[in-house]
Computed example of a mutant assay.
Amino acid sequence: MIPPTVRRGAGRASCHHGEILQGVFLDAGGRRCAGLVTLPMSGLGSRAEFTRRPGTPPEQLTVLPGDRTKAARAAALAVAECALRRREPPCGGELRITGDIPVGLGMGSSTSDVIAVVRAVADSYGMRLAPDTVARLAVRAELACDPLMLDARPVLFAQREGRVLEVLGPCLPPLVVVGCALGGGAPVDTLSLPVRAYDDTDVRAFERLRGLLRRAVATGDAALLGRVASASARQGQRLLGHPEFDTLADIARRLGAVGVQIAHSGAVAGLLLDPAAPGLRHRVRSCVRALESNGIAATRTFTSFLPRPASPASFPPSFPPSSPPSFPTTKEFPSGPAHRGGHRPTGPDSPRRPARLPAL
């Protein structure tokens, strides 16, 4: 039996499969800001359980695994937020995090941890925080975050500010994604990458891609989305420099993929296929064979199919009233490589190491 002074909460968050578009864009006021659009992926995620102990000092916060420093910061921030709303003093507690997202591949593992923790803390207070509040806390905890708190709706998201620049539409065009890991799945040390300066020409190019992506979402045009993702991926290669990228792009051209996408902060990548085109199963199998014959590890094949309804309460006030109340889910494509359960290496805040590729 749980003592009356103990309150428990649970939270979960999913991951993504890298970016469809990333760059520098103009906000509604004409100010430049970094932004991205992620490719949602379900199945993998982080889970958190928070046991709140009212009456204990807030610094008495224990975290398992102990090296999840970003998650620990998120827990402390969420406790302060929720306690203020409940007009209670903040307190300590115990936090336990589990998950199966490979780290270091650019799939949002640390953001997933942080969001799961914020949700668990809020649940221990009997609350559900709005997505824009979760985003604000996530940015404070890890300086930049992915839009995983928005539950897969296609948005252009300012990752360093935790705000939505634009809701692009109700859901992504249907896609089949043949996933892979470049560089053998070796983690990308994003902190060691040079900081690129963007000029007005670059911003205009990114704004053009933004407009094309908006049109692709509005019309359900998988081919146009593939063009945008490929252009963005090639831009990202100026910093990432994956040696297999040209091979990946060549496979896409030869086998009828509509484009390629990559993680701009990791090694995960994908071939994008239009499920409405003929011979889909054959093309999926051909893509997997071509990847593996070129030494690129194929991981998971999944889809971005079929929107499901979202609760109107899940939309933050900053979303325009016209935002469609639906968003895409993903599921594994049956003819692709089977998803095999794996254990997520502990410590997304510890030095990155190659993920176990079957965990994808």
Score class of each variant (00 low, 15 high):
2 I>T: 15
2 I>Y: 09
5 T>P: 01
8 R>Y: 04
9 G>L: 03
14 S>C: 08
15 C>W: 06
15 C>K: 03
15 C>M: 10
16 H>F: 06
17 H>L: 09
19 E>C: 08
22 Q>K: 11
23 G>I: 06
25 F>L: 08
26 L>Y: 09
26 L>F: 07
28 A>P: 01
30 G>I: 12
40 P>S: 10
41 M>Y: 13
41 M>K: 13
44 L>I: 13
45 G>C: 10
47 R>D: 12
47 R>T: 06
51 T>F: 00
52 R>C: 09
54 P>Y: 11
56 T>Q: 12
61 L>K: 10
66 G>V: 03
68 R>Y: 02
69 T>G: 04
69 T>N: 02
70 K>A: 00
71 A>R: 05
74 A>N: 00
76 A>N: 06
77 L>V: 03
80 A>C: 08
84 L>G: 15
86 R>M: 12
94 E>F: 05
95 L>M: 03
95 L>A: 01
96 R>N: 04
98 T>L: 02
103 V>Y: 00
103 V>K: 05
111 T>R: 01
113 D>K: 00
114 V>Q: 04
116 A>C: 00
118 V>G: 05
120 A>T: 11
123 D>W: 02
125 Y>G: 09
132 D>V: 00
133 T>R: 12
135 A>L: 02
139 V>Q: 05
144 A>G: 02
146 D>W: 06
146 D>K: 03
154 P>H: 13
161 E>P: 01
161 E>T: 09
164 V>S: 08
164 V>P: 14
168 L>Y: 05
171 C>Q: 15
171 C>R: 15
172 L>W: 15
174 P>T: 07
175 L>E: 12
176 V>A: 09
177 V>R: 04
177 V>G: 03
184 G>K: 04
184 G>D: 02
186 A>E: 09
186 A>I: 00
187 P>K: 08
190 T>L: 01
190 T>V: 14
191 L>R: 14
192 S>P: 00
196 R>Q: 11
200 D>I: 02
203 V>T: 02
204 R>E: 15
205 A>H: 07
208 R>M: 10
209 L>Q: 12
210 R>S: 01
210 R>C: 06
210 R>K: 14
211 G>S: 02
211 G>K: 04
215 R>H: 11
216 A>E: 14
222 A>H: 01
223 A>Y: 14
228 V>P: 12
233 A>L: 02
237 Q>G: 08
249 A>V: 11
252 A>V: 02
253 R>D: 13
255 L>I: 07
255 L>A: 07
264 H>Q: 13
264 H>I: 10
266 G>H: 03
267 A>N: 06
268 V>I: 14
271 L>M: 10
274 D>A: 11
277 A>F: 08
277 A>Y: 00
281 R>N: 12
282 H>Q: 10
283 R>D: 05
288 V>R: 09
294 N>K: 13
295 G>S: 01
302 F>C: 04
307 P>R: 13
308 R>P: 00
308 R>G: 14
313 A>E: 15
314 S>P: 00
314 S>K: 06
318 S>P: 00
318 S>N: 05
321 P>T: 10
323 S>Y: 10
323 S>Q: 04
324 P>V: 12
327 F>W: 12
327 F>D: 04
330 T>K: 01
330 T>E: 07
332 E>D: 15
332 E>Q: 03
334 P>C: 01
334 P>K: 06
338 A>S: 13
339 H>N: 08
340 R>G: 05
343 H>R: 12
349 D>H: 04
355 A>C: 15
357 L>N: 07
358 P>C: 11
359 A>P: 05
360 L>T: 10
360 L>M: 14
